[in-house]
Each structure stands twice: as structure tokens, then as C-alpha cells.
Computed example of a mutant assay.
Amino acid sequence: MWFVFALLSAVFAALTSILAKIGIEGVNSNLATAIRTMVVLAMAWGMVFLTHAQSGIGSISRKSWLFLILSGLATGASWLCYYRALQVGEASKVVPIDKLSVVITLVLAFLLLHEEVSVKDVVGCVLIGAGTLMMVL
């Protein structure tokens, strides 16, 4: 089931890029990010209440709060940079560079989470990196 959700995530991320590129025309990138964030916030809290998950707030540990907040700050910084890049660059160039996050995530997962990295993973990352270079040069 994780694969279905991951695939849907990729489809929606692709739509996000195209819809954002069209919608950001003539709009300050920071304002556009804030509008997008308001919609995401409403959707996320809507799902919390729809699934009755709000009762779990009190059981979240301090460590989880800290890392969820840090993750939120990283997401915000990513979105602000992404929208600015989309505003001034071509979507077909910005998106491949943004997807280098796959390679960076693998490296960070290895260094910080001590996850195993196989030869297949390294080859995949090299191919992603090479493919990104080919697309943006």
C-alpha cells in the first residue's frame, strides 16, 4: 500500500509544479507560498478531524514535537525557495533540481539514521544525478 501512496504523491507533486508555475505568474513568490500553505494547512487539519486523530495531540513526546517543528521549518524553507525558483526559472529545469532531494535524502539517511545503502541505491543516485545534469544543462 505504501507504493500506491508514494506513486500518488509523485503525481500530485508533478501537478503541484505545473499548477504553481501557471498560478505564480504576476504574484510575489512568498505570497504564493503563503496561499498554498493555507490550503495545505486546511486540508491537513481537515483530515485530522475527519479521521478523529486530534485526540493523539496530548501523547506526542517533546522529541517528536521538536523534530516535527524542525521538519515544518525545513518544509517552509523548501517551499519558499521552490516557488521563487519556479517564478524565475522554467519548471522543466527547476523540478529536476528539486528532485535531487532523493539523492540528498539517501545520503542523510545513511549519515544520520544509519540506514543501509546498497550498491543498487548508489547506482540509482548516480543515475538521478546524471539525469538531472542532462536535463538542466
Rank of each mutant, 00 (worst) to 15 (best):
residue 7 L to M: 01
residue 26 G to Y: 06
residue 76 G to F: 08
residue 48 V to P: 02
residue 11 V to E: 07
residue 62 R to Y: 14
residue 7 L to E: 06
residue 60 I to Q: 10
residue 114 H to I: 07
residue 83 Y to V: 02
residue 85 A to W: 04
residue 73 L to K: 10
residue 19 L to F: 04
residue 97 I to D: 10
residue 5 F to L: 10
residue 10 A to R: 08
residue 45 W to A: 13
residue 134 M to L: 15
residue 37 T to Q: 06
residue 72 G to K: 06
residue 87 Q to E: 07
residue 49 F to L: 00
residue 84 R to C: 08
residue 57 I to P: 00
residue 35 I to N: 11
residue 37 T to L: 01
residue 60 I to H: 10
residue 32 A to R: 07
residue 100 L to W: 03
residue 71 S to G: 15
residue 76 G to S: 00
residue 57 I to Y: 00
residue 127 L to I: 03
residue 75 T to F: 10
residue 12 F to K: 07
residue 23 G to H: 08
residue 97 I to Q: 11
residue 81 C to S: 02
residue 72 G to L: 05
residue 59 S to W: 07
residue 30 N to W: 09
residue 114 H to S: 12
residue 54 Q to G: 01
residue 129 G to I: 06
residue 70 L to I: 14
residue 8 L to Y: 11
residue 120 K to D: 07
residue 9 S to T: 15
residue 25 E to C: 10
residue 56 G to Q: 09
residue 65 W to I: 03
residue 52 H to R: 06
residue 4 V to S: 00
residue 61 S to K: 01
residue 7 L to Y: 00
residue 1 M to F: 02
residue 49 F to T: 04
residue 99 K to L: 01
residue 77 A to F: 04
residue 83 Y to H: 06
residue 28 N to W: 03
residue 30 N to V: 13
residue 55 S to T: 15
residue 115 E to D: 09
residue 131 G to Y: 04
residue 58 G to T: 13
residue 1 M to A: 03
residue 130 A to H: 00
residue 51 T to I: 06
residue 120 K to Y: 12
residue 104 I to K: 09
residue 111 L to G: 02
residue 79 W to D: 15
residue 71 S to C: 12
residue 23 G to Y: 01
residue 94 V to N: 00
residue 4 V to F: 05
residue 117 V to F: 10
residue 39 V to W: 13
residue 44 A to L: 03
residue 76 G to M: 06
residue 64 S to N: 15
residue 19 L to D: 09
residue 84 R to S: 07
residue 135 M to E: 08
residue 130 A to M: 08
residue 9 S to D: 07
residue 40 V to K: 15
residue 8 L to D: 11
residue 114 H to M: 02
residue 60 I to M: 12
residue 51 T to Y: 03
residue 1 M to D: 06
residue 79 W to F: 04
residue 55 S to C: 08
residue 56 G to L: 08
residue 122 V to Q: 08
residue 116 E to Q: 15
residue 104 I to A: 08
residue 109 A to H: 01
residue 37 T to R: 11
residue 107 V to I: 05
residue 11 V to R: 09
residue 20 A to P: 10
residue 134 M to T: 10
residue 109 A to M: 07
residue 118 S to P: 09
residue 27 V to R: 13
residue 88 V to M: 11
residue 56 G to I: 03
residue 97 I to Y: 13
residue 62 R to I: 15
residue 2 W to V: 02
residue 6 A to H: 03
residue 33 T to I: 00
residue 57 I to K: 05
residue 100 L to F: 01
residue 42 A to Y: 01
residue 100 L to Y: 14
residue 37 T to I: 14
residue 10 A to M: 02
residue 87 Q to D: 11
residue 13 A to D: 14
residue 44 A to M: 01
residue 118 S to V: 02
residue 58 G to I: 00
residue 122 V to D: 09
residue 23 G to A: 01
residue 29 S to H: 06
residue 67 F to Q: 12
residue 61 S to T: 06
residue 85 A to Y: 10
residue 24 I to E: 11
residue 3 F to A: 02
residue 47 M to T: 15
residue 66 L to D: 07
residue 3 F to C: 11
residue 60 I to K: 05
residue 109 A to N: 12
residue 66 L to I: 13
residue 11 V to H: 03
residue 106 L to R: 14
residue 41 L to R: 08
residue 122 V to F: 05
residue 108 L to Y: 13
residue 41 L to M: 14
residue 96 P to W: 11
residue 10 A to Y: 09
residue 7 L to N: 12
residue 47 M to N: 15
residue 53 A to N: 12
residue 35 I to S: 12
residue 53 A to L: 04
residue 8 L to V: 01
